[in-house]
């Protein structure tokens, strides 16, 4: 299953045609690393995947069970994901083009 996923990675359109990474690049590698239990690698590939998955799981549970503070926690999770994604992307861009 994991090997199949690893052999069928989708190339990012941004990388394919423009040669520059998008904020979501590394998500698939991060997901595979997560499936293998390699949390550090997962965070290294894309730190935003873990909070994003947590937010999605939270969303599904909230839609099913309707928690009292569900909506607010989803917004917090979403904000956390977004901030991580943006900071990671900006740092990556600075690292690539800043030198």
């Amino acid at each position: 299953m994991i090997n199949w996923l690893e052999q069928h990675l989708v190339t990012c359109l941004s990388v394919k045609y423009l040669g520059m990474e998008c904020p979501g690049c590394g998500m698939q590698r991060a997901f595979i690393a997560l499936l293998r239990g390699q949390f550090a690698d997962s965070l290294h590939y894309n730190p935003a995947l873990l909070p994003f998955l947590i937010t999605v799981v939270m969303l599904l549970f909230h839609l099913k069970f309707d928690f009292k503070h569900g909506a607010r926690s989803i917004v917090i999770g979403f904000a956390f994901t977004t901030v991580l994604m943006v900071v990671n992307y900006v740092l990556k861009q600075v690292h690539i083009y800043g030198h």
Partner: peptide, 8 residues
Amino acid sequence: IVSIATCW
């Protein structure tokens, strides 16, 4: 939530 996940 989907809107943030489709930056690719």
